[in-house]
């Protein structure tokens, strides 16, 4: 093996074979992964591109006792997992990245001091979302993707604001 080949070997993206993945819930709240005869405790799945892809490119990693990070590998597409495995991983990721989707925007009140109060209907129910420094925390990541980070650190999103009803869109228009 040449030096260059060796360098690429170190940096190789290790894609996991979904058929060999076996995940189980741990008492600690993390997952245990069994893969190619090895058992990895406290496995923490991470979405590599959390805003734009929820089920592809999922990194599985763990921290050892010295708190050193180790990546086990990456799941390219969760759809290749067995149904039960998909469910376990999906529920973990939904929990880790809990981010209600905004379905309707009723009104936005501006306190004229940099904070806004967005009365909206989300997948987690009706809420008045308090946002501080709204020009930083209430922003469009693309022309259609709205990302919201409220004063407590809760996150909300709207994948495509143009799909919202007319009233919501007109309320949003002032602030996006």
């Amino acid at each position: 093996m040449t030096e260059t080949e060796e360098l690429y070997k170190v940096d190789e993206l290790k894609l996991l074979d979904c058929k060999k993945i076996h995940l189980t819930h741990e008492k600690s709240g993390f997952l245990t992964l069994e893969y190619e005869g090895k058992v990895y405790h406290k496995t923490d799945p991470t979405r590599l591109v959390p805003f734009f892809s929820k089920t592809t490119y999922i990194s599985l990693s763990y921290e050892d006792e010295e708190k050193e990070f180790h990546e086990i590998g990456v799941i390219k597409n969760m759809a290749d997992l067995e149904e039960e495995q998909y469910k376990i991983l999906d529920s973990y990721l939904k929990y880790k990245y809990f981010m209600p989707e905004i379905l309707k925007v009723y009104s936005i009140r501006d306190n004229m001091q940099g904070s806004i109060f967005v009365k909206s209907l989300t997948t987690a129910g009706e809420k008045t979302i308090c946002i501080k420094d709204w020009y930083q925390n209430f922003r469009m990541l693309t022309d259609s993707y709205l990302y919201v980070n409220d004063a407590d650190g809760n996150k909300y999103f709207c994948e495509d604001i143009h799909r919202l009803d007319k009233k919501s869109l007109s309320v949003l228009e002032m602030f996006t």
């Binding site: 600690s28 993390f30 929990y95 407590d152």
Partner: peptide
Amino acid sequence: RRGIGTSFIQGIAPGGEVTGFCGFTQDLF
């Protein structure tokens, strides 16, 4: 422990075994 969309509370036994009790939204952190 503060997570990304949620946080959680854990108990650690003298032997190091960790029990996750529940997860909650960030306003409860």
